[in-house]
Simulated assay, not measured.
Amino acid sequence: MSVPDCSAQQGAESNLQNMEFKRNHSELFRAECVRLIMETDTACKRMQNDDSKELGQRVQDIQFMTKELELKLDEIVVEIDLLLTSQSRVEKALEACKEPLRITLLCLEERMKRFPTERRHDKADRELLKEREVIEGAILILRRAAEQVTEQLRLNRSMKELLEQDLREKSEAQCIDNSCILMNAESPDSQLRPKRTQTLLPSLSVTPKQWENISDVNMAQAEQQLANSLYLRALLESLLEQTATDMQKQANAVATALQLNVWDLKAAKTQIEEQMSTIRSELASQQRSRVDLLTAIAEQERLLGLAQARLALRLQRPSKEQCLDPAQLQLLAEVQQINAHITKLREAVAQSEEEQRALLRCQRELQENLELKTNSLYIDEVICAQLREPLTHGF
Protein backbone atom coordinates (compact mmCIF):
# COMPACT_ATOMS: atom_id res chain seq x y z
CA MET A 1 0.00 0.00 0.00
CA SER A 2 2.94 2.35 0.54
CA VAL A 3 4.10 2.31 -3.10
CA PRO A 4 0.79 3.46 -4.69
CA ASP A 5 0.50 6.26 -2.19
CA CYS A 6 3.93 7.57 -3.18
CA SER A 7 3.08 7.52 -6.89
CA ALA A 8 -0.18 9.40 -6.34
CA GLN A 9 1.58 12.05 -4.34
CA GLN A 10 4.22 12.55 -7.05
CA GLY A 11 1.51 12.86 -9.71
CA ALA A 12 -0.31 15.50 -7.71
CA GLU A 13 2.88 17.52 -7.28
CA SER A 14 3.56 17.30 -11.00
CA ASN A 15 0.07 18.63 -11.83
CA LEU A 16 0.52 21.49 -9.40
CA GLN A 17 3.83 22.43 -10.99
CA ASN A 18 2.25 22.32 -14.47
CA MET A 19 -0.60 24.52 -13.36
CA GLU A 20 1.83 26.92 -11.73
CA PHE A 21 3.77 27.13 -15.00
CA LYS A 22 0.64 27.82 -17.00
CA ARG A 23 -0.48 30.47 -14.53
CA ASN A 24 2.90 32.14 -14.64
CA HIS A 25 2.88 31.95 -18.44
CA SER A 26 -0.57 33.51 -18.51
CA GLU A 27 0.51 36.30 -16.20
CA LEU A 28 3.52 37.00 -18.41
CA PHE A 29 1.32 37.02 -21.51
CA ARG A 30 -1.08 39.48 -19.85
CA ALA A 31 1.81 41.68 -18.91
CA GLU A 32 3.06 41.51 -22.51
CA CYS A 33 -0.40 42.43 -23.75
CA VAL A 34 -0.52 45.42 -21.43
CA ARG A 35 2.93 46.50 -22.65
CA LEU A 36 1.89 45.99 -26.28
CA ILE A 37 -1.28 48.02 -25.78
CA MET A 38 0.67 50.83 -24.17
CA GLU A 39 3.31 50.74 -26.88
CA THR A 40 0.78 50.76 -29.73
CA ASP A 41 -1.22 53.51 -28.04
CA THR A 42 1.91 55.58 -27.52
CA ALA A 43 3.06 54.92 -31.07
CA CYS A 44 -0.34 55.85 -32.51
CA LYS A 45 -0.48 59.08 -30.48
CA ARG A 46 3.05 59.91 -31.55
CA MET A 47 2.18 59.20 -35.18
CA GLN A 48 -0.98 61.32 -34.90
CA ASN A 49 1.07 64.16 -33.45
CA ASP A 50 3.59 63.73 -36.26
CA ASP A 51 0.71 63.67 -38.74
CA SER A 52 -0.66 66.92 -37.34
CA LYS A 53 2.77 68.54 -37.48
CA GLU A 54 3.39 67.39 -41.05
CA LEU A 55 -0.10 68.44 -42.12
CA GLY A 56 0.41 71.80 -40.40
CA GLN A 57 3.74 72.24 -42.18
CA ARG A 58 2.08 71.23 -45.43
CA VAL A 59 -0.61 73.86 -44.93
CA GLN A 60 2.08 76.47 -44.26
CA ASP A 61 3.89 75.42 -47.44
CA ILE A 62 0.65 75.73 -49.40
CA GLN A 63 -0.06 79.14 -47.86
CA PHE A 64 3.43 80.37 -48.71
CA MET A 65 3.14 79.10 -52.27
CA THR A 66 -0.37 80.57 -52.53
CA LYS A 67 0.93 84.02 -51.57
CA GLU A 68 3.66 83.77 -54.19
CA LEU A 69 1.15 82.71 -56.83
CA GLU A 70 -1.25 85.50 -55.84
CA LEU A 71 1.51 88.10 -56.15
CA LYS A 72 2.44 86.78 -59.57
CA LEU A 73 -1.22 86.68 -60.58
CA ASP A 74 -1.69 90.32 -59.52
CA GLU A 75 1.34 91.28 -61.59
CA ILE A 76 0.06 89.46 -64.66
CA VAL A 77 -3.39 91.07 -64.29
CA VAL A 78 -1.83 94.55 -64.09
CA GLU A 79 0.37 93.75 -67.09
CA ILE A 80 -2.65 92.65 -69.12
CA ASP A 81 -4.32 96.00 -68.45
CA LEU A 82 -1.17 97.92 -69.42
CA LEU A 83 -0.79 95.85 -72.57
CA LEU A 84 -4.42 96.53 -73.49
CA THR A 85 -3.65 100.25 -73.25
CA SER A 86 -0.64 99.79 -75.52
CA GLN A 87 -2.78 97.82 -77.94
CA SER A 88 -5.25 100.71 -78.09
CA ARG A 89 -2.43 103.14 -78.84
CA VAL A 90 -1.14 100.95 -81.65
CA GLU A 91 -4.61 100.74 -83.16
CA LYS A 92 -4.97 104.53 -83.01
CA ALA A 93 -1.54 104.95 -84.62
CA LEU A 94 -2.59 102.60 -87.42
CA GLU A 95 -5.74 104.63 -87.97
CA ALA A 96 -3.71 107.86 -87.97
CA CYS A 97 -1.51 106.55 -90.80
CA LYS A 98 -4.40 106.29 -93.26
CA GLU A 99 -4.84 110.01 -93.98
CA PRO A 100 -1.12 110.79 -94.60
CA LEU A 101 -0.92 107.79 -96.93
CA ARG A 102 -4.00 108.98 -98.82
CA ILE A 103 -2.50 112.47 -99.21
CA THR A 104 0.81 111.05 -100.43
CA LEU A 105 -0.91 108.85 -102.99
CA LEU A 106 -3.01 111.82 -104.18
CA CYS A 107 0.15 113.92 -104.63
CA LEU A 108 1.74 111.13 -106.65
CA GLU A 109 -1.44 110.82 -108.69
CA GLU A 110 -1.58 114.57 -109.36
CA ARG A 111 2.06 114.62 -110.43
CA MET A 112 1.28 111.77 -112.81
CA LYS A 113 -1.14 114.16 -114.54
CA ARG A 114 1.78 116.18 -115.82
CA PHE A 115 2.39 115.87 -119.54
CA PRO A 116 4.38 112.75 -120.45
CA THR A 117 7.62 114.61 -121.01
CA GLU A 118 7.35 116.18 -117.56
CA ARG A 119 6.87 112.88 -115.75
CA ARG A 120 10.53 112.56 -114.88
CA HIS A 121 11.55 110.82 -111.70
CA ASP A 122 12.75 113.94 -109.91
CA LYS A 123 13.66 114.44 -106.27
CA ALA A 124 10.10 115.36 -105.34
CA ASP A 125 8.89 112.07 -106.81
CA ARG A 126 11.61 110.19 -104.99
CA GLU A 127 10.72 111.84 -101.69
CA LEU A 128 7.03 111.17 -102.22
CA LEU A 129 7.75 107.54 -103.04
CA LYS A 130 10.02 107.36 -100.02
CA GLU A 131 7.24 108.90 -97.92
CA ARG A 132 4.85 106.25 -99.20
CA GLU A 133 7.41 103.58 -98.30
CA VAL A 134 7.90 105.12 -94.85
CA ILE A 135 4.15 105.22 -94.14
CA GLU A 136 3.52 101.77 -95.58
CA GLY A 137 6.51 100.47 -93.63
CA ALA A 138 5.15 102.08 -90.47
CA ILE A 139 1.75 100.49 -91.12
CA LEU A 140 3.38 97.11 -91.69
CA ILE A 141 5.47 97.41 -88.54
CA LEU A 142 2.49 98.58 -86.50
CA ARG A 143 0.38 95.70 -87.80
CA ARG A 144 3.08 93.24 -86.84
CA ALA A 145 3.32 94.95 -83.46
CA ALA A 146 -0.46 94.64 -83.08
CA GLU A 147 -0.19 90.94 -83.88
CA GLN A 148 2.60 90.58 -81.31
CA VAL A 149 0.49 92.41 -78.73
CA THR A 150 -2.47 90.15 -79.48
CA GLU A 151 -0.28 87.08 -79.14
CA GLN A 152 1.32 88.38 -75.94
CA LEU A 153 -2.12 89.12 -74.51
CA ARG A 154 -3.13 85.56 -75.34
CA LEU A 155 -0.04 84.24 -73.57
CA ASN A 156 -0.62 86.51 -70.57
CA ARG A 157 -4.25 85.45 -70.29
CA SER A 158 -3.28 81.83 -70.67
CA MET A 159 -0.70 82.33 -67.92
CA LYS A 160 -3.36 84.04 -65.79
CA GLU A 161 -5.69 81.05 -66.21
CA LEU A 162 -2.86 78.68 -65.35
CA LEU A 163 -2.05 80.60 -62.17
CA GLU A 164 -5.73 80.78 -61.23
CA GLN A 165 -6.07 77.04 -61.74
CA ASP A 166 -2.98 76.44 -59.61
CA LEU A 167 -4.42 78.69 -56.90
CA ARG A 168 -7.75 76.86 -57.00
CA GLU A 169 -5.97 73.55 -56.63
CA LYS A 170 -3.84 74.93 -53.80
CA SER A 171 -6.97 76.22 -52.06
CA GLU A 172 -8.68 72.85 -52.43
CA ALA A 173 -5.62 71.03 -51.12
CA GLN A 174 -5.36 73.46 -48.19
CA CYS A 175 -9.02 72.90 -47.27
CA ILE A 176 -8.53 69.14 -47.37
CA ASP A 177 -5.38 69.29 -45.25
CA ASN A 178 -7.08 71.63 -42.76
CA SER A 179 -9.91 69.12 -42.51
CA CYS A 180 -7.37 66.37 -41.91
CA ILE A 181 -5.81 68.43 -39.07
CA LEU A 182 -9.20 68.88 -37.40
CA MET A 183 -10.02 65.18 -37.59
CA ASN A 184 -9.27 63.01 -34.52
CA ALA A 185 -10.30 59.71 -33.00
CA GLU A 186 -13.47 61.28 -31.54
CA SER A 187 -14.62 62.53 -34.95
CA PRO A 188 -17.92 61.13 -36.28
CA ASP A 189 -17.78 57.73 -37.90
CA SER A 190 -18.90 59.30 -41.20
CA GLN A 191 -15.62 61.21 -41.31
CA LEU A 192 -13.47 58.33 -40.16
CA ARG A 193 -14.96 55.83 -42.58
CA PRO A 194 -12.59 55.79 -45.60
CA LYS A 195 -14.07 56.37 -49.03
CA ARG A 196 -13.57 53.87 -51.76
CA THR A 197 -10.86 55.64 -53.73
CA GLN A 198 -8.04 54.05 -55.55
CA THR A 199 -4.80 54.57 -53.65
CA LEU A 200 -2.05 55.98 -55.81
CA LEU A 201 1.08 53.94 -55.98
CA PRO A 202 4.14 55.70 -54.61
CA SER A 203 5.72 55.58 -58.07
CA LEU A 204 2.76 57.54 -59.48
CA SER A 205 2.55 60.11 -56.67
CA VAL A 206 3.98 63.61 -56.98
CA THR A 207 6.96 64.13 -54.74
CA PRO A 208 7.19 67.30 -52.59
CA LYS A 209 9.98 68.51 -54.83
CA GLN A 210 7.89 67.89 -57.93
CA TRP A 211 4.92 69.60 -56.28
CA GLU A 212 7.06 72.63 -55.54
CA ASN A 213 8.56 72.56 -59.02
CA ILE A 214 5.10 72.66 -60.62
CA SER A 215 4.29 76.03 -59.05
CA ASP A 216 7.87 77.24 -59.51
CA VAL A 217 7.63 76.43 -63.19
CA ASN A 218 4.30 78.24 -63.44
CA MET A 219 5.71 81.30 -61.69
CA ALA A 220 8.87 81.16 -63.80
CA GLN A 221 6.76 81.03 -66.95
CA ALA A 222 4.65 83.90 -65.63
CA GLU A 223 7.82 85.88 -64.88
CA GLN A 224 9.06 85.19 -68.40
CA GLN A 225 5.79 86.36 -69.91
CA LEU A 226 5.90 89.45 -67.71
CA ALA A 227 9.42 90.18 -68.92
CA ASN A 228 8.36 89.60 -72.54
CA SER A 229 5.33 91.83 -72.08
CA LEU A 230 7.39 94.57 -70.45
CA TYR A 231 9.93 94.42 -73.26
CA LEU A 232 7.14 94.51 -75.84
CA ARG A 233 5.56 97.58 -74.24
CA ALA A 234 8.92 99.35 -74.17
CA LEU A 235 9.43 98.39 -77.80
CA LEU A 236 5.99 99.73 -78.68
CA GLU A 237 6.74 103.05 -76.99
CA SER A 238 9.94 103.37 -78.97
CA LEU A 239 8.20 102.21 -82.14
CA LEU A 240 5.35 104.68 -81.86
CA GLU A 241 7.76 107.53 -81.22
CA GLN A 242 10.09 106.47 -84.02
CA THR A 243 7.35 106.03 -86.62
CA ALA A 244 5.89 109.46 -85.83
CA THR A 245 9.36 111.02 -86.05
CA ASP A 246 10.17 109.26 -89.33
CA MET A 247 6.87 110.25 -90.91
CA GLN A 248 7.21 113.88 -89.85
CA LYS A 249 10.81 113.99 -91.03
CA GLN A 250 9.82 112.57 -94.40
CA ALA A 251 6.89 114.98 -94.70
CA ASN A 252 9.34 117.85 -94.19
CA ALA A 253 11.66 116.32 -96.78
CA VAL A 254 8.80 116.11 -99.30
CA ALA A 255 7.84 119.75 -98.66
CA THR A 256 11.43 120.84 -99.17
CA ALA A 257 11.77 118.75 -102.33
CA LEU A 258 8.56 120.20 -103.79
CA GLN A 259 9.71 123.73 -103.02
CA LEU A 260 13.11 123.09 -104.57
CA ASN A 261 11.41 121.58 -107.59
CA VAL A 262 9.32 124.72 -108.01
CA TRP A 263 12.46 126.83 -107.97
CA ASP A 264 14.12 124.48 -110.44
CA LEU A 265 11.15 124.66 -112.79
CA LYS A 266 11.22 128.43 -112.76
CA ALA A 267 14.96 128.51 -113.35
CA ALA A 268 14.69 125.90 -116.12
CA LYS A 269 12.69 128.28 -118.33
CA THR A 270 15.70 130.55 -118.69
CA GLN A 271 18.15 127.66 -119.16
CA ILE A 272 16.32 125.71 -121.86
CA GLU A 273 17.38 128.00 -124.72
CA GLU A 274 21.05 127.68 -123.75
CA GLN A 275 20.74 123.91 -123.49
CA MET A 276 18.99 123.76 -126.87
CA SER A 277 21.87 125.68 -128.47
CA THR A 278 24.45 123.38 -126.89
CA ILE A 279 22.58 120.25 -127.97
CA ARG A 280 22.18 121.51 -131.53
CA SER A 281 25.91 122.18 -131.70
CA GLU A 282 26.74 118.77 -130.31
CA LEU A 283 24.28 117.12 -132.70
CA ALA A 284 25.96 118.80 -135.66
CA SER A 285 29.39 117.70 -134.41
CA GLN A 286 28.11 114.15 -133.94
CA GLN A 287 26.76 114.16 -137.51
CA ARG A 288 30.13 115.31 -138.83
CA SER A 289 31.81 112.59 -136.77
CA ARG A 290 29.50 109.99 -138.32
CA VAL A 291 30.39 111.23 -141.82
CA ASP A 292 34.09 110.97 -140.95
CA LEU A 293 33.58 107.44 -139.67
CA LEU A 294 31.76 106.40 -142.85
CA THR A 295 34.59 107.88 -144.91
CA ALA A 296 37.14 105.93 -142.88
CA ILE A 297 35.12 102.74 -143.37
CA ALA A 298 35.11 103.28 -147.14
CA GLU A 299 38.89 103.82 -147.14
CA GLN A 300 39.40 100.63 -145.06
CA GLU A 301 37.14 98.65 -147.38
CA ARG A 302 39.22 99.87 -150.36
CA LEU A 303 42.42 98.70 -148.64
CA LEU A 304 40.72 95.41 -147.76
CA GLY A 305 39.84 94.91 -151.40
CA LEU A 306 43.46 95.51 -152.37
CA ALA A 307 44.78 92.94 -149.88
CA GLN A 308 42.16 90.38 -150.92
CA ALA A 309 43.02 90.93 -154.61
CA ARG A 310 46.68 90.30 -153.88
CA LEU A 311 45.83 87.08 -152.05
CA ALA A 312 43.62 85.94 -154.93
CA LEU A 313 46.32 86.72 -157.47
CA ARG A 314 48.96 84.79 -155.48
CA LEU A 315 46.73 81.73 -155.55
CA GLN A 316 47.50 81.60 -159.30
CA ARG A 317 51.15 80.74 -158.66
CA PRO A 318 52.31 77.30 -159.76
CA SER A 319 51.60 74.55 -157.29
CA LYS A 320 55.20 74.22 -156.32
CA GLU A 321 55.30 77.95 -155.64
CA GLN A 322 52.27 77.85 -153.33
CA CYS A 323 54.42 78.59 -150.34
CA LEU A 324 53.18 80.08 -147.04
CA ASP A 325 55.95 82.64 -147.21
CA PRO A 326 56.23 85.83 -145.12
CA ALA A 327 54.49 87.83 -147.82
CA GLN A 328 51.51 85.48 -147.73
CA LEU A 329 51.41 85.65 -143.91
CA GLN A 330 51.63 89.43 -144.03
CA LEU A 331 48.72 89.64 -146.47
CA LEU A 332 46.59 87.31 -144.35
CA ALA A 333 47.35 89.33 -141.23
CA GLU A 334 46.58 92.53 -143.10
CA VAL A 335 43.13 91.22 -144.12
CA GLN A 336 42.40 90.22 -140.53
CA GLN A 337 43.50 93.57 -139.13
CA ILE A 338 41.56 95.58 -141.71
CA ASN A 339 38.42 93.55 -140.96
CA ALA A 340 38.90 94.29 -137.27
CA HIS A 341 39.31 98.01 -138.05
CA ILE A 342 36.15 98.01 -140.15
CA THR A 343 34.21 96.25 -137.35
CA LYS A 344 35.32 98.83 -134.79
CA LEU A 345 34.52 101.70 -137.16
CA ARG A 346 31.04 100.30 -137.82
CA GLU A 347 30.47 99.90 -134.08
CA ALA A 348 31.53 103.55 -133.69
CA VAL A 349 29.04 104.52 -136.43
CA ALA A 350 26.27 102.67 -134.60
CA GLN A 351 27.27 104.35 -131.35
CA SER A 352 27.34 107.71 -133.11
CA GLU A 353 23.85 107.13 -134.46
CA GLU A 354 22.69 106.19 -130.97
CA GLU A 355 24.26 109.37 -129.59
CA GLN A 356 22.48 111.39 -132.27
CA ARG A 357 19.15 109.81 -131.39
CA ALA A 358 19.75 110.58 -127.72
CA LEU A 359 20.56 114.19 -128.55
CA LEU A 360 17.43 114.44 -130.67
CA ARG A 361 15.36 113.07 -127.80
CA CYS A 362 16.90 115.65 -125.48
CA GLN A 363 16.10 118.36 -127.96
CA ARG A 364 12.48 117.29 -128.20
CA GLU A 365 12.21 117.07 -124.42
CA LEU A 366 13.60 120.58 -124.03
CA GLN A 367 11.16 121.88 -126.61
CA GLU A 368 8.26 120.24 -124.81
CA ASN A 369 9.49 121.36 -121.38
CA LEU A 370 9.51 124.95 -122.53
CA GLU A 371 5.73 124.71 -123.05
CA LEU A 372 4.93 122.46 -120.08
CA LYS A 373 6.72 124.17 -117.21
CA THR A 374 3.67 126.21 -116.34
CA ASN A 375 1.54 123.09 -115.96
CA SER A 376 4.13 121.38 -113.76
CA LEU A 377 4.50 124.49 -111.63
CA TYR A 378 0.75 124.62 -111.04
CA ILE A 379 0.67 120.99 -109.88
CA ASP A 380 3.61 121.31 -107.47
CA GLU A 381 3.09 124.86 -106.28
CA VAL A 382 -0.69 124.90 -105.94
CA ILE A 383 -2.35 121.47 -105.92
CA CYS A 384 0.25 119.50 -103.93
CA ALA A 385 0.76 122.38 -101.50
CA GLN A 386 -2.98 122.49 -100.75
CA LEU A 387 -3.20 118.72 -100.35
CA ARG A 388 -0.26 118.62 -97.95
CA GLU A 389 -1.44 121.54 -95.80
CA PRO A 390 -2.80 119.20 -93.02
CA LEU A 391 0.59 117.47 -92.73
CA THR A 392 2.32 120.69 -91.74
CA HIS A 393 0.62 120.51 -88.33
CA GLY A 394 2.53 117.33 -87.44
CA PHE A 395 1.61 113.70 -86.74
Results as ranks from 00 to 15, higher is better:
residue 300 Q to E: 08
residue 166 D to Y: 02
residue 86 S to Y: 05
residue 326 P to M: 01
residue 85 T to P: 02
residue 146 A to L: 06
residue 347 E to I: 10
residue 207 T to E: 08
residue 289 S to F: 10
residue 324 L to Y: 09
residue 8 A to S: 07
residue 95 E to Y: 06
residue 373 K to A: 07
residue 215 S to V: 13
residue 127 E to V: 11
residue 83 L to Y: 00
residue 215 S to L: 12
residue 247 M to C: 06
residue 326 P to E: 05
residue 299 E to W: 10
residue 318 P to E: 07
residue 335 V to Y: 03
residue 116 P to C: 04
residue 362 C to T: 09
residue 1 M to R: 04
residue 265 L to H: 00
residue 107 C to E: 10
residue 146 A to N: 09
residue 92 K to L: 13
residue 216 D to C: 09
residue 329 L to K: 07
residue 144 R to S: 07
residue 123 K to V: 07
residue 11 G to E: 14
residue 160 K to S: 06
residue 359 L to R: 03
residue 47 M to S: 15
residue 15 N to T: 03
residue 376 S to R: 04
residue 16 L to H: 06
residue 290 R to P: 02
residue 250 Q to R: 03
residue 26 S to D: 04
residue 27 E to A: 03
residue 165 Q to N: 10
residue 348 A to M: 10
residue 222 A to D: 11
residue 192 L to T: 08
residue 246 D to G: 02
residue 92 K to C: 07
residue 175 C to S: 14
residue 32 E to A: 03
residue 39 E to K: 15
residue 227 A to T: 15
residue 269 K to R: 06
residue 285 S to P: 05
residue 239 L to G: 02
residue 135 I to C: 03
residue 191 Q to M: 12
residue 194 P to L: 10
residue 289 S to N: 09
residue 363 Q to P: 01
residue 133 E to N: 04
residue 51 D to P: 02
residue 29 F to A: 13
residue 322 Q to F: 07
residue 255 A to D: 07
residue 1 M to Q: 04
residue 248 Q to F: 05
residue 390 P to A: 04
residue 80 I to M: 09
residue 347 E to S: 15
residue 22 K to M: 08
residue 115 F to N: 09
residue 99 E to F: 09
residue 380 D to I: 01
residue 243 T to Q: 01
residue 102 R to I: 06
residue 351 Q to K: 15
residue 168 R to I: 05
residue 93 A to W: 04
residue 108 L to S: 08
residue 197 T to P: 01
residue 213 N to V: 13
residue 241 E to V: 07
residue 224 Q to I: 02
residue 307 A to L: 08
residue 268 A to L: 02
residue 359 L to N: 01
residue 300 Q to G: 03
residue 222 A to Y: 07
residue 382 V to W: 05
residue 239 L to K: 00
residue 114 R to Q: 07
